[in-house]
Design a protein around this nucleic acid. Structure first.
Lengths: 165, 165
DNA sequence: TATTGTTATACTCTATAACTATA
DNA sequence: TATAGTTATAGAGTATAACAATA
């Protein structure tokens, strides 16, 4: 979390000193800015960067918040379903779930109808933390998109979903 | 490039066999879908996934395309400027530039006014490849956002820039 | 035979510290 | 002193192959 990444370049207000302001001579990014991929990536890095900062308060990575929130709204969800929903490969979900279980935020119970699977559930502690984190996420939404009106924000989400759905 | 990532889940058309379709029982993602960050990330993964496939034809990674395009429109740009523009840390830009130089796509010349810096320029081969790749990128834009009207596409880009600018 | 969950492992991406040479 | 570029390296994220247990 430092140096280049996700920092709102703040070129000092150019206080008319005699320094030739080596700052960052203007770079032409006009072509890249016509590409949806470039803009979507920059916007997601910006929002998710703020997301990371706010979730760090709870000791959660972004993907861990996503897992907890999905478990909260889908009690008994399987590892396989979490993988498919979040585009995480099964071997990488193992450690993710193990870490949340070690912290006592979730627990795994045998799946009622499928002996191979384990259903994931929130513990009371996990439910409390998730509720808090979801509130933080809702507030963060406002902050991260402060330059958008409520209508613009809804339009943005609708168009993004149209792209990936 | 396989399994989970960026594949447009294609649950076979459910040909009315007697199989109980274990597929992927519906998961409630309604809360995550209210978050700009979640939607922006999924959309960017979707578009950039296609970007990766198309750029692979030229043996280019997405970030390499970005570097070439920036050099094309900013001849003599420095490594430092590329880093700042693309959110890549200086140590990681070294290998990136070295690889493009080894392929004969770019060349570095001493900066005219700053003895520490090197200006990056396209070779004729690099210029030809970049022109082709930029055309591919323009076409890809249409394909990746096929579900959007021209107006919606412009709106989407405008709103994304409003978020990260 | 196919699928869930798992281990082990490799590869890529990203980040930090420290050095050099110029400014 | 500060900056551009570099080296070496550490860490996180993402990928594949292969296995056991169950369907």
């Amino acid at each position: 979390m430092s140096s280049t990444r996700s920092r709102k370049k703040t070129p000092p207000p150019a206080a008319c000193t005699d320094a030739p302001a080596p700052a960052t001579e203007a770079v032409d990014t006009s072509l890249l800015r016509t590409l949806v991929g470039y803009n979507a990536r920059r916007a997601s890095l910006s929002v998710i960067g703020l997301f990371m900062e706010r979730m760090a308060v709870y000791g959660l990575k972004v993907v861990e918040f996503s897992v907890l929130s999905l478990v909260a709204h889908n009690p008994g969800i399987t590892s396989r379903q979490l993988c498919a929903t979040l585009n995480v490969l099964p071997p990488n979900m193992v450690g993710l779930i193990a870490a949340l279980e070690r912290r006592g935020l979730i627990e795994r119970r045998p799946h009622p109808s499928d002996g191979r699977a384990m259903g994931v559930h929130l513990t009371p502690e996990g439910a409390a933390l998730t509720a808090q984190a979801e509130q933080t996420a809702a507030q963060l939404e406002q902050d991260a998109t402060a330059r958008l009106t409520a209508t613009e924000r809804k339009t943005l989400i609708r168009l993004l979903q149209k792209v990936y759905d």
